[in-house]
Amino acid sequence: MSILVGKKAPMFTTKAVVDGDKIVEDFSLEQYIGEKHVVFFFYPADFTFVCPTEIIAFQNKIAEFEKRNVAVVGCSVDSEFSHWKWLQIEQSDGGIKGVKYPLVADASNSIAENYGVLAGEYDYNENGEIIFKGQPAAYRGLFLIDKEGVVRHQVVNDMPLGRSVDETLRMVDALQFHERHGEVCPADWHEGEKAIIETQDSIASYLSN
């Protein structure tokens, strides 16, 4: 798995479904550079079980991300048509209708591969033919990208393990606080709590309280 923290996020142009029902041909994260922070997350597949709980949980908190000027973007190795179909199905019937943030189509697996979350790899068989070993789906990777296009936080879960949207918001708050004030955020820091100025004295003072 690649460690992308501190590096430029891999860019791409691909198809996506936006606003819950519109297929666009040339979606790219580059549109957010200089404008917004981005939470870019991968999920294994459409029409599954854990994935809709995460996708809908992000939608339920989308106002919290928007007030922080953060774009939320989801991605799986499914086609744009699969995304669109799932978005038309009521949540009570196993669908994700009502989700409005973009869902990116990565049918070639290239985006997941570039982000280091593809659950498998391409190889050659004894005849020299390209084959895929493993599962052609994405682990539950999440990347917090700043306005300069640099990855500042990443977390990757195995497929059975759902993520915490509240923890994602906490990391957004920590990054934006650091960007505004230059102070660093200790363990379990939340907005409004004391942070640390990076000197030995300030760290010792914080730990003694």
Score class of each variant (00 low, 15 high):
A107H: 08
I96L: 05
K8I: 10
A45K: 14
C75P: 06
L103N: 00
D146K: 00
D166N: 12
P102D: 07
E167A: 10
G34H: 05
E148M: 02
N60S: 04
V165S: 02
A112K: 02
D93Y: 13
A119G: 05
H153G: 05
V50R: 13
K7T: 06
K133D: 06
K133I: 06
S82G: 03
L103R: 03
Y122C: 06
A112R: 02
I55F: 13
E167R: 02
V39Q: 05
F47W: 10
E148D: 12
Q176W: 07
S28Y: 10
F40T: 04
G116A: 14
Q59I: 11
L142R: 03
A174K: 03
M159D: 07
R140A: 01
H181Q: 05
A174R: 05
V38K: 06
H178K: 13
D93F: 10
K8V: 03
R140L: 08
V72Q: 04
E193Y: 13
N69V: 00
F42I: 01
E121V: 04
K61L: 08
Q88N: 15
T53Y: 13
T53V: 12
E183L: 14
K194Y: 12
A195S: 15
S76D: 05
D123W: 13
D46G: 11
C75G: 04
T199C: 13
R163S: 11
I33H: 06
M159E: 11
G120T: 08
K7I: 02
F143N: 00
A107T: 13
V17I: 11
R180I: 06
S76R: 00
F81H: 13
D188E: 08
Y139L: 07
D158N: 10
E193A: 13
K85M: 15
I55G: 14
K194H: 12
K15E: 06
E66W: 06
I111Q: 01
S205K: 14
P10Y: 11
K100Y: 07
N209R: 10
K15R: 09
R140D: 01
A187W: 12
I96Y: 06
V5H: 03
I111C: 01
Q154D: 08
N209H: 12
E179Q: 14
T14S: 12
I56W: 12
L142Q: 01
V72W: 11
Q176E: 08
D78C: 10
N209C: 05
L207A: 04
H190G: 02
S92R: 12
E54Y: 10
E183G: 07
L161S: 12
F47C: 08
D123S: 15
K147R: 09
F41G: 03
Q31S: 14
Q31A: 14
P52R: 00
T168P: 09
G134T: 06
L87H: 08
Q135N: 11
G162Y: 00
K36G: 10
N127K: 14
P160V: 05
T199R: 08
Q135V: 09
F81V: 05
K61G: 09
E191P: 00
I23D: 12
A174Q: 02
A63L: 08
V155P: 01
F177E: 05
M171Q: 13
E126G: 11
Q135R: 03
H37C: 13
K67A: 08
I203R: 15
S205C: 08
A204M: 13
V150C: 11
